[in-house]
């Protein structure tokens, strides 16, 4: 595989409330800023991830294109998935296309406009699940219960994940700054308490990929070390919670194995509910010596459709700053960790 590096990463200061900015207005300063940072105004390829249901109207990605400066016309694609999968599509494209030595990847979402837990339920089996009205927090709670029953972990272990994430998030200027969770906080959907559910936020993230000579050129300009993608893979599990063992994540294990997820110092995991960190630690064989979500993770700010891309960006940023040598970024999609993407990065 061709060596490709993440050479820049930027994100919004994620907001729990609607600040009145349209999606394009949220994206424009971010994209303009990253263009200035890397000194490139036109990229070989552009790919984005978003979800129409967050604003309740089709074609949300069409107006987002206005923020890119797509003139003259650009080589561009879009996935109706988290921006992490847009990064994957760009990485695949760069493997073989001689014309593409840089790529712009972004993801964005404004969940403040609707009820996220109900919106997400529109993504469930339209015959057996969606008509029930089961929401995304309830689905996650079902998985949490299965995990606690199988592993013998206690609810306090979930709170501990939230506490550690929130403490880290308070040091991250882009995250929400949330209080220390109380172990007897009310349940949201038991066994998940309010702090076990990632707080939705409006936000966006941008990543720049480069290969060949462009990596050193951009690195010289930014003063950041390139974060080389040593492996990237994604896998799916069957959809329905009734046909799989919810207490484990075979697709995360497989994606991790294919991406070569060993020996990492830091893992940024797309943990939308506290128990998912525990399941993912098992699936990815992350020992106690691995620092998980030093950014605070989605439990400190969950900019839906960008949150997975943010994880990869945060994992890259630690290499950019010279803080770590080998890191892991993870993204998930679908109910109960159904789809998982793992990227392994190295300085």
């Amino acid at each position: 595989m061709k060596d490709i590096a993440i050479v820049a990463f930027a994100q919004t200061r994620h907001s729990a409330e609607d600040t009145g900015l349209a999606e394009t207005e949220m994206l424009l300063p971010l994209i303009s800023g990253v263009k200035e940072q890397v000194g490139i105004s036109r990229f070989g390829f552009t790919c984005s991830g978003s979800n129409d249901y967050l604003q309740g109207a089709p074609f949300s990605f069409v107006s987002a294109l206005d923020a890119v400066g797509a003139w003259p016309p650009i080589s561009e694609s879009h996935v109706e998935m988290d921006g992490a999968w847009a990064l994957y599509e760009a990485w695949v494209k760069m493997q073989y296309s001689d014309e593409v030595d840089t790529a712009l990847v972004y993801g964005f979402g404004k969940p403040s406009q609707g009820s996220l837990r109900e919106i997400m339920s529109r993504g469930y089996d339209p015959y057996y699940l969606a008509p029930l009205g089961v929401d995304s927090v309830s689905m996650a709670a079902l998985q949490a219960r299965a995990y606690l029953t199988r592993s013998g972990a206690k609810e306090g272990d979930l709170t501990a994940v939230a506490a550690r994430s929130r403490a880290a998030g308070r040091n991250n200027p882009y995250a929400l700054h949330l209080d220390e969770p109380s172990p007897d906080a009310p349940y949201d959907v038991a066994p998940l308490r309010a702090h076990d559910v990632a707080p939705e936020a409006d936000g966006a993230a941008v990543v720049v990929l480069a290969t060949g000579d462009r990596v050193a050129e951009i690195s010289a300009r930014t003063g950041l070390k390139p974060a080389w993608i040593r492996g990237i893979d994604h896998r799916a599990d069957p959809h329905s919670p009734g046909v799989r063992d919810l207490s484990v994540s075979p697709s995360a294990r497989l994606a991790g194995a294919k991406a070569g997820a060993t020996g990492v110092e830091v893992a940024e995991l797309h943990v939308q509910f506290s128990h998912e960190e525990l399941i993912l630690r098992e699936a990815l064989d992350l020992g106690d010596d691995v620092l998980v979500n030093p950014s605070g993770g989605p439990l400190s700010a969950n900019p839906v459709m960008a949150a997975g891309l943010v994880r990869i960006g945060e994992a890259a940023a630690r290499i950019h700053r010279g803080e770590n040598r080998r890191t892991l970024g993870h993204a998930t999609s679908g109910p109960c960790l159904q789809q998982n993407l793992v990227a392994v990065l190295e300085g």
Binding site: M81, A236, H239, S333, Q339
Partner: peptide
């Protein structure tokens, strides 16, 4: 079809 991000529902199908 009112099925959001249908790749999840369709993965095993």
């Amino acid at each position: 079809e009112g099925v959001m991000m249908p790749e999840a529902y369709l993965a095993d199908a």
